[in-house]
Every structure is written in structure tokens, then in C-alpha cells.
Design a binder for these strands. Structure first.
Length: 606
RNA sequence: GCACCCGUAGCUCAGCUGGAUAGAGCACUCGCCUUCUAAGCGAAUGGUCGCAGGUUCGAAUCCUGCCGGGUGCGCCA
């Protein structure tokens, strides 16, 4: 992505400055020496373990310019870098300069910064771009995610897209990018016709009072089954005729099926909204497929009239074989458009309405070819913004026995997973709080329900975004109901523990602290990890990946749990108690902030 | 046939813009609640990084070929 990382980490920045100065001091006479602060900054990283140091600088990239071995460079720079005010000690270990940072610096610049929230308000990217008048402004991105079809059911497969897109939007916004979140539901097409066909001619059931969207999804599945059964029989032609008739009414926007479409669509939309609300997702704009349908056809016809498209075998499209992308069909022989046609129009609409610098599509990897074609067509017809369109692909969610398909009906409806999980959580963990047992504080039923909801959300969302986008997720209900180990609830538990701890010991930001007292390895490890939070998010935004943040939070959680087990807080001497409490609180703040980037709520007790 | 993705511990996965001894979780085995939430902590076990070459001071990481699995490639979306 276009954004450049800034030297936002004050500790890294000070070290980088110090290293640059040292290089100039030591090698002032050398030729070809042209090293910049940002370069050195980007070469700094956490040391592999605390015995070696806190932050490491590998001298490899300097070796070529200086024509010296990296270990020699490290040894020569060592003494010149030691006077950096934040540094306790520097060691040259082979090709590396390893820095030990003063506890005072870590305490003030990391712990105190997290507790005052200054850490979360740091600008972590160079976000400015220039507008037409040369005026600087922040980058504007658009992320399109969640493209569910109406008249079908939302299942766990849709959750990956939803959780990934939501997390990316939140991460981009955290990073200061002006990001709009948009969705593109499919409310037209043959799937709708099939559903309405079954509903009108074959359904015997009463329309339920509630959950009409899910019920409608079953109509669609039944329609497919019946159409499949009647294939090859004398009904086949009749069915095809009916479907054509329905599609025509939908296209003409009049007739009984059009009215039926409006009504049934609202049932599906209700289900979508319920799901989005559950997922804590909000969209700035809903782009309906029906809304770009007609304009897309008009536009493509214009392109054809301008001679930018060709007719082949009766269909109109663009020959992209020079780009090894085959033929991109845009108008079928029957004169109607396709998916690609609408996406060409939608891209133009997005840039026109929002004037974004980057247009990202979160869509599964089966559409990779489709988007390459669409973007190439846009480029070839002279749409300059085509270069700013980006397909973010991810792998599918499958069931142990293969791919999910609402056509076949072998799916796990999302809300089924949610209720199953909430039930398990209550039974295994929360019901004990309802009793008058003196071991526990008593909770209200409402608190239990709300907490179960948060934890189920944490488990599902974390499960969806913790693996690499390119890796398939095999959904196994049994596995997902286990809530120990690397899971959302593990992270939420850390937050709940910290909250309860701070509550019990009366944490206040103004408590007198002495950072020098944090001598235990688990304390240092936690501080160093906390220092790396913003960098982790920045990298995630650049790579459009969520797993980095997940790994970070899990490691942070583990470090906290070790610290919690090893370092008594309540029983510690007053000054140490306050200092440790500040460290714990800072961890809680980073955990809460990090979870919120993933769209996950952090319960205060569980 | 062509294109893209995946192949790391028994299972699920990190690590991949080359760099310090290949890491987690689950499962299995041991230990830790009269002490701040045991959804936790500690310890032990477990790997020819698919195979073969190449580039490099250095390769799980980059390049080439092969093997195995998945997906896509004109009238669906």
C-alpha cells in the first residue's frame, strides 16, 4: 500500500538517531555513505530474547556501503551509540547491536503513554497525499466487504469476510486513514427468481412471524432441490419459462413478482442487519446490485459504441488475451449484463461518490480472475483510478466434509453457531455466577447473557481472523466450542482479570510509581511487548492482514499471564504495587484497544 | 493445458521484503488454587521446514524444476 511508516515509536526513533549520528562519527571519511534515519528506523526490531537485549539492530545492510563485515561495524559503533539517553547498555553481539533500554524510558514512553491513551493517538503513518491544488490531506480508502445475497441464508462462511473486513476497517481507521466501509449485497439475479418461484408455486408453509430471512433462505435451497429433481422431466421447460417471466418482471420493476421481491428482500435485509448488529459492523454505504444493474448496461453500451469493446459470438466484451486474462464478457447474447458488467459500473460509482485514493475489495479468492478482468477493462477504457483498485482475496471456510453451499443447503447458519456457543459458555463457565455460592460474586441473568454474547463473539471473530488470508478454515463445531489456548476468550480473560485487579486494588493514573523497581524478566518482557503495539498495527495495515495483530495480542496475553503468576501485586510493597498495577493496567488498555481493532469487545469480568 | 493459492511437530497454525538456537496452540505426561479470576501458570515430549537443484558469507524465507492438495479460466454470481 502507498502509505509510508513514520518513525512514531519514540524509543526506536531515539535509537535510530543515535545510530545515524554514530555512523557519521565513526565513518566520516568513508565513501558512499548515505544512510537515512527512516532507513535505520525500519531496520530496528525486537531482540529474540531479553538476555540478548530489548531492541536489536542488525548491521548487515551497512556492510556493503562500508565494505566491512557486519560484526566489525557493530563493534565499532557500539561505544558511540551508548550515550543515547534512553539506553541503559549496548552490546555488540556478532553482527548485531543490542540495546537495553532504561526502565525509566520504557515506563514513561510505553506504560504511562498507554495509561493516558497517548499511545493510541500517535500518528503511525505518513498519510498525507496532495490534492489537485497541491494541498495536503489524509489518504481516503474504501473497503468493500460483505457481499451477501438476499433470499439466501447467512452462514459461518460469510463470517470470515465480515470479520476480516470489519477488522481491516478498524485497523485502517486506527492508523489514521480516512476509511469508508461499504457493502454490496446481491439482491437481483437467478437466485432471487428461483426463491420467488418456489415460494409462489410450491411452498405450503406459513410465513413465520420471526426469522423470516432464514426461512426465506430455506425456500431458496428447496427451490434448487426441486428444480434439480424436475430436470429432464416435462416440467423443465415450464420451470424455465416461469423463471424467465419472474426475471423479466424484476427487470421491468412491475408486476406481482416485483412486489413480492420488495417484500421478501426486506426479510433478508432484516437478517443482514441483525447479523451486522451482532458483529458490531456498520456500513457507510450499501451499494445494491439492483442499483448498478441498469446503469452498468448503459455505460457498457456506450463503450461499445465508442469502439472500445468487441462483439464475439453474439456477445459483447473485451479481449484481454494479450494480458492472459481471456475474454471479459460484458453483455450476453440476450442483451443482459453480468457480474463483471456491474462491477465495472460500481467501481466508477465508488470513485465518483467518495473520491477515494484506494478502493479495496474483500472478496474470496475464487473471484481473483474476475477482478483482474474488471480492473483491466477499466484500465483499458481509460479509467485512471483502475490502478487504485485492489482485490484482497482470502480462502474459503469449509466444513469437514467439503465446501459449504446454500444451494445444496449443507451450511451452518451463523445464528446457530452463535446460540450454540453462548449455550456452551453459560453452561461451562457462567452459570456458577447465578447461584448464591459464597465463592463468587452474584451476577444478574442479564449480565450473564451479555457476557456470554461478548465471549461467543470473541471466539468466533478471533477464529475467523487469526489465520492467514490465504489459508483455508475448516469449520468444526466441536473445535470451535473449545475456548482455551489461542482463542478470543483467552485474550478477553486477560482483560477481565486486569480489570478486576485494578478495581480491587484501586488503580489510579496518578499513583506514584518507580519504574526502576520493575526488575523481573516477566515485567521487562511485558513492557517491551507493549512498546511494539503500534508497529504491529502499522504492519497489519500495510499488508492488509489481521493475523499479525492476533499473534501480537496472544503473545501479549501470555506474557501478562506469566507476569500475573510470577509477580504478586496486592501483596507487594506500596511503591512496587503501584508500579506493577500501572503495568497491568497498561496491558489491559492495549488489550482492549487491540481487541477492538478486531471488532471484539473486552468484558470487564468473566 | 494455462493461471493463482497451500504443503513447517500426531492435529491446527505462526515464522516467508534472506540473518542470532525453527516457535505457538491442541493432544499426551508431570507439577501448581489457605495468596490479586485455574477460561490460568510452570516443566517434559515432539520437526529430513513436500522433494531436488540454484543464488548467497548465510535459505523455512529468494529463483527454477518436480510431486501432492485446492481454486479459477466466455453467456452463473
Amino acid at each position: 500500500m502507498k502509505v509510508k511508516p513514520l518513525p512514531f515509536n519514540p524509543i526506536f526513533k531515539a535509537l535510530a538517531q543515535s545510530i545515524v549520528a554514530a555512523i557519521h562519527e565513526v565513518y566520516s571519511n568513508e565513501e558512499g555513505l548515505d544512510i537515512e534515519l527512516s532507513q535505520v528506523y525500519s531496520m530496528l526490531g525486537l531482540a529474540p530474547n531479553l538476555k540478548m537485549g530489548h531492541i536489536a539492530f542488525g548491521c548487515f545492510p551497512l556492510a556493503k556501503a562500508l565494505r566491512k563485515g557486519p560484526p566489525q561495524i557493530a563493534a565499532q559503533l557500539k561505544d558511540h551509540v551508548a550515550n543515547c539517553p534512553l539506553v541503559e547498555e549496548v552490546q555488540a553481539q556478532g553482527p548485531y547491536l543490542n540495546f537495553f533500554i532504561k526502565k525509566e524510558s520504557l515506563g514513561e514512553l510505553v506504560i504511562a503513554a498507554a495509561n493516558s491513551h497517548a499511545l493510541f493517538e500517535t500518528e503511525i503513518f505518513d498519510l498525507t497525499t496532495q490534492d489537485e491544488k497541491g494541498k495536503k490531506r489524509n489518504e481516503k480508502w474504501m473497503i468493500e466487504y460483505s457481499q451477501p445475497n438476499t433470499h439466501k441464508i447467512l452462514h459461518v462462511g460469510h463470517m470470515r469476510n465480515l470479520c476480516l473486513g470489519n477488522a481491516l476497517v478498524r485497523m485502517c481507521r486506527y492508523a489514521g486513514i480516512d476509511t469508508s466501509a461499504v457493502t454490496y449485497p446481491g439482491d437481483v439475479g437467478t437466485h432471487v427468481a428461483k426463491c420467488l418461484w418456489y415460494y409462489k408455486f410450491h411452498n405450503q408453509e406459513e410465513v413465520p412471524k420471526e426469522d423470516k430471512g432464514a426461512w426465506l433462505g430455506q425456500m431458496y435451497t428447496k427451490a434448487n432441490t426441486l428444480l434439480e429433481e424436475q430436470r429432464g422431466t416435462d416440467k423443465e421447460a415450464e420451470n424455465r419459462e416461469s423463471l424467465t417471466h419472474i426475471l423479466k418482471e424484476l427487470h421491468d420493476q412491475k408486476g406481482e413478482f416485483y412486489d413480492l421481491w420488495l417484500e421478501t428482500k426486506s426479510w433478508s435485509v432484516e437478517l443482514m442487519k441483525e447479523t451486522y448488529s451482532w458483529a458490531d459492523v456498520e456500513f457507510d454505504r450499501w451499494f445494491w446490485e439492483s442499483e448498478v444493474d441498469a446503469p452498468s448496461l448503459t455505460y457498457v453500451k456506450e463503450l461499445y459504441d465508442q469502439g472500445k469493446l468487441i462483439k464475439d459470438e453474439g456477445a459483447i466484451g473485451m479481449d484481454l488475451s494479450d494480458d492472459k486474462l481471456g475474454f471479459c464478457m460484458l453483455i450476453k447474447t440476450d442483451g443482459t449484463g453480468l457480474y463483471a458488467t456491474k462491477d465495472v459500473e460500481l467501481a466508477r460509482k465508488k470513485f465518483k461518490e467518495y473520491g477515494v485514493d484506494k478502493n479495496i475489495y474483500v472478496v474470496d479468492n475464487r473471484q481473483a480472475h474476475h477482478f483482474k478482468q474488471v480492473f483491466k477493462v477499466l484500465e483499458k477504457v481509460g479509467f485512471e483510478k483502475a490502478k487504485d483498485c485492489h482485490h484482497l482475496q482470502y480462502e474459503m471456510v469449509e466444513l469437514p466434509d467439503g465446501a459449504m453451499s446454500s444451494r445444496k443447503g449443507n451450511i451452518v447458519p451463523l445464528m446457530e453457531l452463535v446460540s450454540e456457543m453462548e449455550k456452551t459458555i453459560k453452561e461451562n463457565y457462567l452459570e456458577k455466577y447465578l447461584s448464591d455460592d459464597s465463592d463468587h460474586e452474584k451476577w444478574s441473568q442479564e449480565e450473564v447473557d451479555r457476557t456470554a454474547r461478548m465471549i461467543a463473539g470473541g471466539a468466533i471473530k478471533y477464529g475467523m481472523v487469526r489465520v492467514d488470508n490465504n489459508r483455508k478454515i475448516v469449520f468444526d463445531m466441536k473445535e470451535w466450542l473449545k475456548l482455551d489456548g489461542e482463542t478470543g476468550p483467552y485474550l478477553q480473560y486477560v482483560h477481565a482479570r486486569i480489570h478486576s485487579l485494578c478495581n480491587k486494588l484501586g488503580y489510579r493514573e496518578e499513583m506514584p510509581v518507580n519504574w526502576e523497581l520493575l526488575k523481573e524478566e516477566s515485567e521487562t518482557a511485558l513492557m517491551v511487548k507493549l512498546m511494539d503495539f503500534n508497529q504491529t498495527v502499522a504492519t497489519g495495515v500495510q499488508k492488509l492482514q489481521t493475523l499479525g495483530v492476533c499473534n501480537y495480542l496472544f503473545e501479549l496475553g501470555k506474557l501478562f499471564n506469566s507476569f500475573y503468576a510470577e509477580c504478586p501485586i496486592g501483596k507487594a510493597e506500596e511503591e512496587l504495587k503501584h508500579t506493577r498495577l500501572a503495568l497491568a493496567h497498561a496491558t489491559g488498555e492495549v488489550m482492549r484497544e487491540g481487541l477492538s481493532l478486531l471488532g471484539i469487545e473486552a468484558p470487564t469480568k468473566m
